[in-house]
Simulated assay, not measured.
Amino acid sequence: MPIIHQIQGRDALLVWAIPFASGREIPPDSLAGYLRDRGDTGVLPPQSDFPSAFQWHNRIRGELYPSQWEELCGNLERLRRDLGSRSLPEVEDRQEWVIASAKLFPARVYVWLDEFNEWLGKASPFKLK
């Protein structure tokens, strides 16, 4: 399944795929927090300038606002606690959490790839192509 799509002549990256595409450098809970806290003056850069996410459905682009990510942050924390209560080995627990957490992210939600790479370049030498 491709995780980079052409939208309005630009490359867009599916948000749920960022933890996988970044080599897990950006875990799901951090990603959700970056989206929730984006632009919040109480958050230090580089996450304060994390690209805004948008939904793309039927050729209509809809903005998603930081407050809309609060519920996802709670769901990810509940998932972490639920998996932790199963006492799985750490590696197995982490893998299962990352995979299950991807399913909690909203569908058809993207960030512009160039904006994401610009942000990532400030935080890490890693870039997506």
Rank of each mutant, 00 (worst) to 15 (best):
D82V: 08
I4A: 09
L31G: 02
E115V: 06
L120F: 08
R78I: 08
Q95G: 07
R38G: 11
W69P: 07
R80T: 05
W16T: 03
R10C: 10
S67C: 13
K127F: 09
L76M: 08
V43G: 05
V111F: 08
S87Q: 14
V15Q: 01
I4M: 08
G74P: 00
G74C: 02
P51K: 03
K122N: 10
I26T: 01
D114F: 12
F116Y: 10
G121L: 03
N75Q: 15
T41K: 11
A100G: 12
P106G: 06
V111L: 01
P46R: 06
I60V: 15
W112G: 00
P2V: 03
E70K: 14
G42P: 02
I3D: 11
R94I: 07
F116R: 02
R24T: 09
S87N: 13
R86D: 05
F126M: 01
K103E: 15
I3F: 14
R108F: 15
V91I: 12
G39R: 05
I18P: 00
D29W: 00
E92N: 03
R86G: 02
D29L: 07
D114C: 04
W119K: 04
W119H: 01
S67P: 00
G74S: 10
N58L: 14
I4S: 04
W56N: 04
G62P: 02
A12M: 05
V15L: 07
D82M: 12
L120T: 01
S48V: 04
P19D: 02
V43W: 06
D29H: 05
R61I: 10
R24D: 12
G121P: 02
G121N: 09
E92M: 04
W97S: 03
E92K: 06
R86H: 08
G33Q: 06
G84Y: 03
A12R: 01
I4Y: 01
R38M: 09
K129M: 06
C73E: 09
Q47W: 05
E115P: 06
L88C: 03
I18A: 00
L64C: 08
A53D: 07
G9P: 02
K127C: 07
E63M: 15
V98W: 05
D114Y: 12
L120M: 12
A107P: 07
E25C: 13
S48I: 05
F20M: 10
Y110G: 00
F116K: 02
G74T: 01
P28T: 03
R78A: 11
T41Q: 13
A100L: 11
H5V: 06
Y65T: 13
G62M: 14
